[in-house]
Design a protein around this nucleic acid. Structure first.
Lengths: 327, 327
DNA sequence: ATGAAAGCGCTAACAA
DNA sequence: TTGTTAGCGCTTTCAT
């Protein structure tokens, strides 16, 4: 309870409790091989001194930090836009990590500088493992980390073929196919798409899925490309309307872009879904608040997050499963 | 370039370069007092061995980690909802931290367990400072950290009077007053409010602002309370419509809740703004995509984030301003 | 069950 | 300018 300005060390705790540093360490780490009376004494000393272990010292010897990084190579603006990908991943990751008693460290890398800093941070062993989501282009970092033995997992097939990094992904094609089938079944014949950015797997795979599905339904592809943001959806929709005024449906590769498209359609006087059917992707919460509520393809994003953690922990060569520390 | 599976230490780098560990350390840390030829030798050794400093060892001796935590006592779901508070804060914080070459560590504490883990993390000196945003009730953690000498800053006046923790906040009252004035000027007479949660300063202060403004305009208060989520806004609006069917305006304490309210009004057949004027708070991006686009009060949230960092770094007793490491 | 002692990888006086 | 040395605070054999 005493508010010691200078932080007490284990040494001082030991001295106050009248034991050796080794024994104090044992008590702090929940070892059972310590006499109850001594345990009490040490715990009292910890309390009185306000002792808290120095994590740097601990991990210097244990070579572990009990924390895991989730790297999002995006700006904070993007991460915190209402793109449901991020909350989904983070929720899944948090749940699983909490169960494993690991600390989640979230890092955003929207710039080259921050990307470098994160590289140093991870390579410097500040964390026991690293997860990547929302990767762009051919980021070499996952491969680099994996190669130096840092447990690494990606969400979405890495575009960089350089390294064998484990990853988890969903079957984008199947989701898209069901969406297109839905539109075709509804009697739509001129089905356009607003695709995602073509430097991201999700963007690439969903567009490929659209093309495949459309080919099967013997319809012509009508494509505009956005970058998963609302604004880009609005712009792409305008373009689509110019290119193919007779379109009667549009499959949009993300709900965010679909929301933007909705606004453009409204401004253009097209009724949804009467004139133009719109179907989104992701099952974002806000999709239930748009006018009209958006039809969208469900994605098990949370599961991706959980699965990443499972993969990571399974891969961890020196994971510990000792009893929890009790200070 | 060689992919050493075992991580090389500074010792090995030094040996390979034919110098002492101290000199190797100097080069790695960008000291200028090393002969150019030796610098080259060391740098070559670093490259060949794939050396990366062990951060735990470094911070054990420097007592610094060059990283700062931003703690959000919310679940990932909340943090990544489209509440614009979080992106704003995080963006401001990121910008400023990037300039200061500090690593941002984002931690969410939606449960008691995670709250505890974060406490250990921060108390264990894994970070050089801690910022809090979106605090609920009387969280003792900021006070505790401040007391043990950890630089700490809060966004929003802390409700816990226990400790003198520096904080930055905006004048909620002024913002609300302008909103209400706007409504009154527009001829509205029955102005209700959907307030935020009353365990948060933003919720409390905005409701107080509404009451004050309304009293001044000699109108009666009509209040429903939400929790800043969209759904709660929809529910509160329904309640308001039941309680005061004749209302002709509603000031909503957050854009998210305003969006929910919009849906309820639409379902109830009230036209916005013809029958009921709605004014939100926060200036969220999605507010420009609702139907009709939401009128909302602008908040300088990013500035709050930046200011928190400035306060924190200014308070840091042993901040370093050395030249950047060059490895 | 407990203690003594070594050492994790690094930085920073202090000497040379 | 460079090297020697002494720790930073902790865990973990190895004795006892």
């Amino acid at each position: 309870m005493t508010a010691a300005r200078e932080r007490p060390t284990l040494e001082e705790v030991a001295r106050r409790a009248g034991v050796s540093r080794a024994t104090a360490s044992r008590v702090v780490n929940g070892s059972t091989t310590v006499a109850p009376s001594i345990q009490d004494a040490v715990r009292r000393a910890v309390r009185e001194l306000g002792y808290v272990p120095n994590l740097a010292a601990r991990s210097l010897v244990t070579q572990r930090t009990e924390s895991i990084a989730l790297v999002l190579p995006e700006t904070a603006t993007r991460v915190f836009s209402d793109d449901p990908l991020f909350p989904g991943i983070v929720r899944g990751v948090s749940q699983e990590l909490e169960a494993a008693e690991r600390q989640l460290v979230l890092m955003m890398a929207g710039s080259a500088a921050s990307h470098d800093r994160i590289e140093r941070y991870a390579m410097g062993r500040h964390v026991d493992g690293v997860m990547f989501a929302s990767m762009h282009g051919m980021d070499p970092l996952p491969g680099v980390l994996a190669r130096i033995g840092m447990p690494t997992v990606c969400s979405g097939r890495p575009l960089a073929a350089t390294a064998r990094v484990p990853y988890v992904d969903v079957d984008h094609g199947a989701g898209v196919a069901s969406a297109v089938r839905h539109l075709v079944a509804g009697g739509r014949r001129r089905i356009a798409t607003i695709a995602g950015p073509q430097d991201m797997v999700a963007g690439i795979d969903r567009l490929a899925g659209y093309r495949t599905a459309l080919r099967e339904s013997r319809n012509r592809s009508i494509v505009a490309v956005g970058d998963f943001t609302r604004e880009s959806g609005a712009v792409a929709m305008r373009q689509l309307l110019d290119d193919a005024p007779a379109l009667d449906a549009v499959f949009v590769a993300s709900d965010l872009m679909a929301d933007g498209a909705l606004r453009t359609l409204r401004e253009a006087g097209r009724r949804v879904p009467h004139d133009v059917a719109v179907i989104g992707f992701d099952d974002a919460e806000f999709a239930r608040y748009t006018d009209p509520p958006l039809t969208t393809v469900r994605q098990p994003i949370i599961e991706i997050g959980r699965e990443m953690v499972r993969l990571l922990l399974a891969a961890d060569p020196r994971a510990r499963s000792s009893s929890p520390p009790n200070w």
